Deep mutational scan, measured.
Amino acid sequence: TEEYEYTDEQQAREAAREWREKGYTVTIEEHNGRWRVKTG
């Protein structure tokens, strides 16, 4: 599992979409105004 943090929701969603296209399972969670994208 890798985790990436973004301050911008749009960036987080874009990144998540790219990971999904590569076949990863992706979770996005908002935490204190930051967006965490977890792949695994």
Rank of each mutant, 00 (worst) to 15 (best):
V26D: 00
Y6H: 03
E30H: 12
Q11N: 07
W35N: 00
K22T: 03
R34E: 04
V37P: 00
Q10F: 12
W35I: 01
Q11P: 03
E21R: 10
E2P: 09
E5F: 15
E3S: 12
K22V: 03
D8C: 07
G33F: 03
E3I: 15
Y6I: 02
G23T: 01
W19H: 03
E21A: 10
R17N: 10
T39N: 05
E30F: 15
E29F: 12
V37K: 00
Q11G: 07
V37G: 00
W35C: 01
R36S: 08
N32D: 11
E3A: 10
E5G: 05
W35S: 00
T7I: 11
R36E: 03
E9Y: 13
D8L: 05
E29S: 11
T39S: 06
E14L: 09
T7N: 13
D8R: 04
T39L: 15
A15V: 09
W19V: 02
E29L: 09
E14P: 00
G40C: 14
W35P: 00
G23H: 03
E30S: 08
E3P: 07
R34G: 07
E30G: 06
Q10Y: 12
V26M: 02
R17A: 11
G33W: 02
D8Y: 06
R13S: 06
E18R: 14
T39F: 15
H31L: 12
R13H: 10
T7K: 09
R34F: 13
I28F: 04
E29K: 06
V37S: 00
V26F: 02
E29V: 11
H31Q: 09
E3C: 10
E14Q: 12
E21V: 06
Q11M: 11
H31E: 10
E5K: 04
V26T: 05
G40N: 14
E30P: 07
A12M: 03
Y4M: 09
Y4K: 07
W19F: 12
R13A: 08
N32R: 05
R20G: 06
R17F: 06
E9R: 05
Y6R: 01
W19P: 01
K22C: 06
T1Y: 15
G40S: 15
T25I: 13
E9A: 07
E3W: 15
W19C: 04
A12E: 00
Y24V: 06
R17I: 07
Q11F: 06
G23W: 02
Y6P: 01
T1Q: 13
R13G: 04
T25P: 06
T39G: 05
G23L: 02
I28E: 02
T39D: 03
I28L: 09
T7G: 11
E21M: 09
Y24I: 06
G23S: 02
R17Q: 11
E18V: 13
E14S: 10
Q10K: 12
Y24P: 00
K38Y: 10
W35A: 00
E14F: 05
A16E: 04
V26A: 08
E14V: 09
K38H: 08
A12G: 02
A12D: 00
E29T: 13
Y24C: 05
E30N: 09
G40M: 15
R17S: 08
E2D: 12
R20Q: 12
G33M: 03
D8V: 05
R34N: 07
H31D: 10
W35L: 01
E29Y: 14
R36Q: 08
Q11Y: 05
T1F: 14
R17E: 10
E5M: 10
W35R: 00
T1W: 15
G33C: 05
R34I: 14
Q11K: 10
V26H: 01
W19Y: 08
E30I: 09
R13P: 00
E18Y: 15
T25A: 09
T7L: 13
R17K: 11
K22F: 04
Y6C: 04
G23A: 02
E14Y: 05
R13M: 13
R34H: 08
A12P: 00
Y24A: 04
E3G: 09
E29R: 07
T25W: 13
Y4N: 06
H31T: 09
W35Y: 06
Y24N: 03
R36I: 15
K38Q: 08
E9K: 05
